[in-house]
Amino acid sequence: MTRVLYLIACAAGPTQHVDDGIRAAQADGWDVYLILTPSAARWWEPRMDELVELTGHPVRSQYKLPWESDALPKATAILVAPISCTSLNKWGAGITDTVALGIPSEAVHMGVPAAVMPYFNQAQGAQPAVARSVAVLREQGVLVLDGADGYESHPPKQGDPKSFPWDKALAGVASLIAA
């Protein structure tokens, strides 16, 4: 049986290296469908064909129009990584103004296992809305991979996007599937 992973990436540093995450997921046996926030899609715009070739699928960054057919099969699991502070708080508040937030926001209430791994600095993480959003997502059954179990926020201006722990993110997804 084909295992379908929606990999959803926001405009956070590691999205520059989302191809590493795709390759890691494919090595774990996932058929990866990539969904980007509109800002993240702009980062990859000159090289979008690389992502299409790597996944073998169109990359989504916009809601489809009503008369368009959906190119996405049913997901086995969803991984939102990296999730930015902005996207985390929007999802926690129920704001689904992008396809990258609308899909997981709905899917978790349809029984699709979902994990998120943040990537933002300690100053952003100190905003009270972050703790509230994490709590809201966890209440909905979303596995939030932060701290020692995922990504530990870095001091401002000291992040290392290239070393984003895709292996921990994929291990989190595997734990959801095994449960």
Rank of each mutant, 00 (worst) to 15 (best):
Val134Thr: 11
Ala107Ile: 00
Gln127Leu: 12
Gln140Phe: 08
Ala100His: 06
Gln127Pro: 00
Leu137Val: 09
Met110Lys: 14
His109Gln: 08
Thr86Glu: 14
Glu106Asn: 12
Ser133Asp: 03
Ser133Pro: 00
Val112Met: 10
Lys90Ala: 14
Val144Thr: 11
Val130Pro: 06
Asn89Gly: 10
Val144His: 02
Gly92Asp: 02
Phe120Lys: 05
Arg138Cys: 09
Ala129Trp: 13
Pro118Met: 09
Met110Phe: 14
Ala123Arg: 14
Gly111Glu: 00
Val142Phe: 05
Asp97Asn: 07
Met110Trp: 13
Ser87Tyr: 07
Arg138Asn: 12
Asn121Met: 06
Lys90Trp: 09
Ala131Phe: 01
Gly111Met: 06
Thr86Gly: 02
Gly125Ala: 05
Pro118Ile: 07
Gly125Gln: 00
Arg132Ser: 02
Gly102Leu: 03
Gly92Val: 04
Val112Lys: 12
His109Val: 05
Ala114Ile: 05
Ala107Pro: 07
Gly147Lys: 06
Ala115Arg: 11
Val134Ser: 03
Gly125Thr: 01
Val136Ser: 11
Gly92Trp: 03
Phe120Trp: 11
Gly147Met: 04
Ile103Phe: 14
Val144Phe: 05
Gly94Asn: 09
Thr96Glu: 13
Arg132Asp: 03
Glu139Arg: 10
Ala93Pro: 06
Ile103Glu: 00
Ala135Gly: 03
Gly92Lys: 02
Pro113Ile: 00
Met110Asp: 02
Cys85Gly: 07
Gln124Cys: 05
Asp146Thr: 10
Trp91Thr: 01
Gln127Val: 01
Ser133Leu: 04
Leu101Gln: 02
Val134Asp: 01
Ser105Met: 11
Gly141Tyr: 07
Gln122Val: 10
Ala107His: 11
Asp97Ala: 01
Val144Cys: 08
Met110Leu: 15
Val116His: 09
Ala107Asp: 08
Gly111Ser: 04
Ser105Glu: 15
Ala131Gly: 04
Thr98Lys: 09
Leu137Ile: 08
Val99Trp: 09
Ala148Ile: 15
Pro113Ala: 00
Asp97Glu: 12
Ser105His: 13
Ser105Ile: 08
